[in-house]
Simulated assay, not measured.
Amino acid sequence: MRTGVRRTVSRLAMAGWLFAVWLLLWGRADALVLAGGAVAVTAVYALTRLPAVPTIMRIRPLRLAEAAVEFAWDLLLSSLVIAWHALYRPRGVRGAVVEVDARTRSEIVLLAVTTSISLRPGTILVDLDWDRHVLYIHAMPVRSQRQADSARDGVLRTEHRLMRALVTSEDAAEQDVSTREDR
């Protein structure tokens, strides 16, 4: 998709999102609310410099469903591990900050990954270096290098699932370059 078309689609998506929030805030959709929403969205665009919304080229529904099921499974397992440590070994729980080099170059996939790992008990995003695509997560329980590597691998698996489910232009371009280099 050309840059101009991508930018237009991105702006329309952001305008649609702002308009939907406007309607939700008012709780009704009469002519005055609709007209006010159009004026408000136009004013927001005229007065501010909103960021571009990254576009998703393709959503793979089966991969997305698979990612959701695996996320639910990860959520269940991590909840059980944290509950067990909280009940039976509360003083023995150790945590660590783990550095994870993200493979994705898409901001929207990176956002989905950070949200996913922060929702899971036992892991939370501490810092994110957007320029280098490096995540720093606090994971627990971590008592050894093997457990730290396991936490890193869990984040990378989540990223891989989401990259397969949400195909973005940034990741598609990156995959095209890596495929050409492999030949």
Results as ranks from 00 to 15, higher is better:
R6C: 01
R7Q: 13
R7N: 06
R7L: 11
V9M: 11
S10A: 15
S10E: 08
R11P: 02
G16M: 04
W17A: 15
V21Q: 14
V21E: 14
W22E: 06
L24G: 09
L24P: 01
G27T: 05
R28Y: 09
R28F: 05
R28D: 10
A31F: 07
L32M: 10
V33C: 04
A35G: 11
A35W: 15
G36W: 02
G36I: 03
G37C: 13
G37D: 04
A38S: 10
V39C: 12
A40D: 13
T42A: 15
A46R: 12
P51L: 07
P54F: 00
M57T: 01
R58D: 05
R60H: 14
R60L: 13
R63I: 03
E70L: 15
E70C: 09
F71K: 01
I82T: 12
Y88A: 15
P90V: 11
P90I: 05
P90M: 11
R91I: 02
V93K: 02
V93H: 02
R94M: 11
G95D: 09
A96Q: 08
D101C: 07
A102L: 15
A102T: 06
E107K: 02
E107M: 04
E107F: 04
L111H: 12
T115F: 06
S116W: 00
L125W: 05
D127M: 07
L128I: 11
D129Y: 09
W130L: 12
W130G: 05
D131W: 05
H133C: 12
H133D: 02
H138E: 12
A139K: 00
M140P: 02
S144F: 06
R146W: 06
R146S: 14
A151E: 01
D153G: 06
G154K: 02
V155R: 02
R157L: 13
E159F: 08
M163C: 12
A165S: 06
E170P: 06
Q175R: 11
Q175I: 12
Q175D: 09
D176K: 07
R180A: 15
E181R: 14
R183V: 11
